[in-house]
Design a protein around this nucleic acid. Sequence first.
DNA 1: GATGAATGAGATTTCATTCAT
DNA 2: AATGAATGAAATCTCATTCAT
Lengths: 217, 217, 217, 217
Amino acid sequence: MNSSNSGMESEQGTEDTSRMTARDRSRVETHRRLIDAGRELFVANGLARTTAAEIARKAGVATGTFYIHFKDKEALLEEAWEEVFQRIGGQMLWIANPVARLSRESVLENARTNAEVLLSSVEARADAFSFWFGPEVAASSAGEKIVFRWAEGIETRLRVEIAQGAVLNGVDPTVAAQAIVGMFVRTLLWWVRDKNRASREAVITTLTMYQVSVYSF
Amino acid sequence: MNSSNSGMESEQGTEDTSRMTARDRSRVETHRRLIDAGRELFVANGLARTTAAEIARKAGVATGTFYIHFKDKEALLEEAWEEVFQRIGGQMLWIANPVARLSRESVLENARTNAEVLLSSVEARADAFSFWFGPEVAASSAGEKIVFRWAEGIETRLRVEIAQGAVLNGVDPTVAAQAIVGMFVRTLLWWVRDKNRASREAVITTLTMYQVSVYSF
Amino acid sequence: MNSSNSGMESEQGTEDTSRMTARDRSRVETHRRLIDAGRELFVANGLARTTAAEIARKAGVATGTFYIHFKDKEALLEEAWEEVFQRIGGQMLWIANPVARLSRESVLENARTNAEVLLSSVEARADAFSFWFGPEVAASSAGEKIVFRWAEGIETRLRVEIAQGAVLNGVDPTVAAQAIVGMFVRTLLWWVRDKNRASREAVITTLTMYQVSVYSF
Amino acid sequence: MNSSNSGMESEQGTEDTSRMTARDRSRVETHRRLIDAGRELFVANGLARTTAAEIARKAGVATGTFYIHFKDKEALLEEAWEEVFQRIGGQMLWIANPVARLSRESVLENARTNAEVLLSSVEARADAFSFWFGPEVAASSAGEKIVFRWAEGIETRLRVEIAQGAVLNGVDPTVAAQAIVGMFVRTLLWWVRDKNRASREAVITTLTMYQVSVYSF
DNA sequence: GATGAATGAGATTTCATTCAT
DNA sequence: AATGAATGAAATCTCATTCAT
C-alpha cells in the first residue's frame, strides 16, 4: 500500500512471523502497517494534522482497528520512535563508538566525524529529522524519551572520559550531555530549515569545536 | 480581577494614558487585561489547553471582545511575548553587555555571570520559562521570534569578538549563536523541570565552560 | 420520527436494502432520515434558518453525524433536490411529452395541459414550490441546477419543433427556454403567495398563450 | 471618499441642502455617504457578505452611526433601491412610453427597442443588474418592491392596450405583467453571466417576439 | 447626531473514542 | 481481531446591535 519511505530509516519488518498463526500474523501485520502509515503521515504532515482515522485509512484498516492496537496517537508515536531509534541510534557516532585511547587527535577526529555523519543523516532525511526532533514531538511524552536516549548515550561516554581524566574539571556529565544535545538539535533544526543560512563546513566546524571544548588536551 | 503574576515580569502598564480619551483608556485597558489574562493562563495551563473564551472570561470581557483585539490566540501570544522580552531581554546579560577589552578573565567572569543570572531568573519563574522556551511555543510562529531574538544578540556579540581576534578560527558566529541558544534552552528546560537532576553549581559551571570554549585565550 | 411530508413528493425509499449488511442499512437509513429531515425543515423554515444541528436533531442523530454524510448544508440540499426532481420532473409535462405531429390544436392543448398540471402541482405543494424555486435556493449552487434542468428540457423540445418548422423564425431555443422558465417560475411564485391576485383560469390562459406564441401556426 | 460608481446610475445628490442648517447638512451628507457606500459594497460583494460595520467604514463614519440612519441593512437596501429606480425606471422603455396609436409596426418596434435598451443597460452595468435583480435581493423584502414596480408599469400599459382592443382575449394584464417580468429578469440574468451563451441578436429577437406575442394584430 | 468598544448568542466544523455487529 | 457509523464535546469565529460618552 505504501512503498514510499518517509521515515528516518530503511523499510524493514523486525518481527519474525514464521512461527505465528495466521491470526497472529495478521495482527502483527496490521500493527506494522499502522506504524508505518502513522510514521509517514506524521513526518509528512505533522502530529496535530494527522488523525487516527487517517492513519487507519492509509494502513488499509478500519478506524476502530487503530484503537485495538494503540491506546491513542501518542502510543503509536512512541512505538514508531522505538523503531526509528533502533536504526538511527548508531548514527549518532559519538555515542556509539567511544575510542579506547583518547588523544587530542582522536577526540577531534571523532567529534568531526560525528558532526559530519549527523549532518549527512539530517540532510538525507530533513523532513524526518525536523519531525522527530521538532517541537511538536518535543511537546509529547514520546519527545521526552527521544532526547533522553541521546543524552544518555553522551553522558555515558563522558563519564568514561572523565574517569580517564580527559575532561576539564567542573564539567558535569549529566549537564554537559543536555548541553550537547540541545546544541546539536537546535543547530541542525535551524540549519535544515534553510541550508543557505550557513555553509556545511561552518556547521560542521562549529559543532566540532563545541564538542571538543571540554576536553583537557 | 487577577493580581497574581505568572508571567516572566513584574506587572506594569507601559502605556501613557494621560492624553487619552476615556474610550481610548478603556480600549487600552481591555487590551492589557486580555494580554495579562492570556499570559497567565498560557503559563499555567499551556497554549493548547487555553481557549480564547477562557482568556476573555478571565479578563472579564465577552468572548467576542477577544476577537476585536486579537486575530487569534497566536496574535495574543506574540504581543505577550513582546512585553515579556522588553523586560527579560536585559537579563540575558551576555547579549546585552559586550565588554570593550576582552581577556581570559573578563570572558570567564562574564560567561559565569550570564549563566548565574539566567539560572536565577529561570528559578524564579520556572513556569514562565518552561512555557516561553518550551516546545509548545517553539511550535508556534511566535516561537520562531523568541529564539531568533536571543540568537541574534549572541551573534552580534560574537561578531564583535571575532573582529577583535578573540575567537578561535573556524567558529561561525551565526552557527555558534544557534548552538549556544540551543544549549542554554535545552539545559535550563531540563534542569528546571527537576532541580535534583544536577546541582546549581554544576549547571552554572558547565554552561560557563561551553560558553568560553570558543575563545582563543 | 417524522411522518409529515412537506417535500414535493410522496415518501418513498428508492434504495434496495435487500442485499445490504445491517451496517449498510443503518448508514443508508441515516442518510435517508437526514435528507428527509433537511428537506422538511428547509421547506418549512427556509435555508438560512435551518442549521445542520437542527437537521441532525430532527433526524434523531448527533450533530457530527450530519458531517459524516454531507459536506455541508448545501450538499444535502443538492441531494434532496435530486430526489425531488426524480418525482416532479415528469410533471413538467411540456418537457416530457413532445408530440410527434404538431398542429395548432395539439400545441395549444399541450401548453394548456402543461400549465394546468403545473398549477395543480404548485397549489398542492405551495410551500415546497416556493422553497425550491424561490430566491433562497436560486442563490445557492443547487439553485443553478434546478432551473437549468427545467430549461434544458424545454430547449430540447424547442429544437425538435424548430427542426419541424413549427416555430417562428428568429426564436433561439436556448434563449426561449430561459424566457419560458423565467415566466413560469416568476408567475407561479407570485400567484402561489396569494391566490387572490388572479383567478386560476387567468393564470392558466395567460401562461398558455405565452407558451404557444412562438409557434408558426 | 468614493468616486467609483458601481451602482446602476450616475452619481448625484438628490437633496437640496441649501436651506439646511449645518447639522442637517451633516446628517443628510452622512445619510448619502452611507447609501452610496452600501450600494457599492452590495453590488461588489453581495448582500450577505457586506456588514453594517463595513458600510460605515467605507462611508467614513462609525459603526453606531449606521444604526442612527437605518434600522438595519435591509432598510438601507430599500432606500438605495429607491434611488436606483428613480434613474433606471425610465430605461424600462416599454413601461415608460406607451404609444398612442398601436399598430403591428409600432408594437414590434417598441418591443424591440425595449429589449435593446434593456440589454444595453444590463451590459453596461452587469454587476449592478445581477445584484438588484438577483436572488439575494429577491429574497429580501426590498426585492419584492423591485420587481413589483416593474410589473406595475407593464400592467398599466397592458390595461390601456386591452382597453384599445389590441390584446388577445384571455390575457390577464396582472398575470401577463408577471410573466413578462419573469421572462426578462431570468433571461437577462442568465445571459449577463456568460454572454457567449447566446448572441445579442438572439436575445433581443426572442425577447421581442415573446413581448409582442399577445397582441392581436 | 456621532462614536466605536463591547456584547453574546449561535453556527460551523473537527475528531478522539466507543460499541454493536 | 476487525469494522466503521455514530457520538457529542469542544473550540473557533462572526456580526447585528447596544450604549455610555
